[in-house]
């Protein structure tokens, strides 16, 4: 991990051991095409409860994405060459797993 970065880390990497899941609120999941296949290279955006942009990551080859957020209401929005998708989610501390279909 670089010391001067603003970009998102590799989405396929395991959650670092230093991350305390008792404290962190993880919003993770898979972007799926209409045929059920995972979508690699999709852009997943996390918007706060007011709709303000918070973060964006690119899905791994297995279509995986992950954010570290806070408990509450968020919007997860996926953009891809196969279409867009997503919606509002309500999350709590720990790992919150979602599937996002794009069409």
């Amino acid at each position: 991990m670089s010391v001067t970065t603003c970009a998102a880390p590799d989405q396929a990497a395991p959650i670092p051991a230093s991350v305390d899941l008792e404290k962190e609120t993880v919003i993770s999941g898979t972007v799926l095409a209409t045929n059920g296949d995972p979508v690699a290279g999709a852009y997943v955006r996390l918007l706060d409860r007011t709709g303000e942009f918070t973060a964006e990551v690119v899905t791994s080859p297995a279509g995986r994405f992950r954010f570290f957020a806070a408990p509450g209401q968020w919007t997860v929005r996926a953009l891809s060459r196969f279409g867009n998708g997503g919606g509002e989610v309500s999350v709590a501390r720990g790992v919150n797993e979602f599937q996002v279909s794009v069409s």
């Binding site: 991990m1 010391v3 970065t5 603003c6 880390p9 230093s18 973060a55 954010f67």
Partner: peptide, 9 residues
């Protein structure tokens, strides 16, 4: 100080 998930400078 930075997006919270990034261990950075």
């Amino acid at each position: 100080l930075a997006p919270a998930h990034l261990p950075q400078e």
